[in-house]
């Protein structure tokens, strides 16, 4: 199965929140969608699952349009971030009721798993959603996502509000479920570093546009931070893709991406260091800070 979007656009006013995005999500991978606040992550994911209409462009699952298509929607689950502070009343629904409603709509709903997770997270099922802490609400969305058993399951900021132990537990649960079923997961997050090792592919969204879709390890492996005397650094990285650089007096640091076969010019007196996904992300998306 493949979830494909083609030239997808969402316009609010005069601004393209999602700007001509084309993407193919394959079965059996864990994808990470990373982007800054307001990059258009939730809008993109909403359109991929037919929760929001697109201004233009198409979304298809195995060639069939997703919009208003029950057969396609049966394979999709987009567990949204629950924002109950707004005056819209979803907060008045009890946890138990919310899970029951979810079970109506997902054909593969695993009530055993839902029950196990509720116990594991120690969720107060009789409480209304608006009485729950941010972390607890995240756990509710995680329960829905995992128990839905949908072939393509999307989680929007699943670790928001979770403490470090709960985050680690979430990723372990996710990997367990992934190993057992081979479902596709898409995780949008801006807590990047912890997620980096879990994500097979990473999609970087910036100002509504896709900057890159890459194998996470390959992307991180191709990135280097070169530092030293400015002239030496310039010589070492000449002809390479420099993404971001900063200078301080005579010294300079530059983030470069090596294409296959390329290398930092040997013999220059510079320090070459590997960098992590978070720094790759900042190098790619942090430009306008200058």
């Amino acid at each position: 199965m493949k979830l494909v979007c083609n030239d997808l656009v969402k316009t609010y006013g005069h601004k393209n929140a999602v700007d001509h995005v084309s993407l193919t999500l394959e079965q059996g991978k864990i994808y990470g969608l990373i982007g800054r606040n307001g990059a258009g992550k939730t809008t993109l994911l909403s359109m991929l699952t037919a929760q929001n209409p697109a201004t233009s462009g198409t979304v298809t699952l195995d060639g069939e349009p997703v919009w208003e298509n029950r057969r396609a929607l049966d394979h999709l689950c987009f567990s949204r971030e629950l924002n109950v502070s707004q005056e819209n009343g979803v907060g008045a629904i009890k946890v138990k009721e919310y899970l029951r409603l979810a079970s109506y709509y997902y054909p593969g709903w695993d009530s055993q798993l839902a029950k196990r997770l509720v116990e594991l997270f120690d969720l107060p099922v009789k409480k209304k959603l608006m009485k729950l802490s941010k972390g607890m609400l995240s756990m509710v969305t995680i329960v829905v996502a995992l128990a839905s058993k949908a072939a393509f399951t999307i989680l929007d900021e699943p670790v928001a509000g979770l403490d470090v132990v709960a985050r680690e537990n979430f990723y372990k649960l996710l990997l367990e479920e992934y190993a057992a079923t081979g479902r596709t997961f898409v995780i949008s997050t801006h807590i990047i570093e912890e997620a980096a090792d879990v994500l097979e592919e990473v999609i970087i969204l910036h100002q509504g546009k896709i900057l890159t879709v890459a194998n996470t390890q390959e992307l991180v492996d191709s990135a280097r931070y070169v530092s030293g005397r400015a002239e030496d650094v310039d010589a070492a990285v000449e002809g390479l893709t420099v993404c971001h650089s900063e200078t301080m007096g005579r010294s300079k640091g530059a983030t470069v991406f090596l294409k296959p076969g390329e290398q930092i010019r040997p013999g220059c007196d510079v320090t070459v260091q590997p960098i992590n996904l978070q720094k790759v992300f900042v190098a790619m998306c942090g430009e306008e800070a200058h």
Binding site: L175, A179, Q217
Partner: peptide, 17 residues
């Protein structure tokens, strides 16, 4: 690979590599 993936919270594809 799945045991390694869970132990280190890494993607099974990475462990397999």
């Amino acid at each position: 690979t799945n045991e390694l993936a869970k132990q280190y919270t890494i993607n099974p594809a990475t462990a397999a590599k």
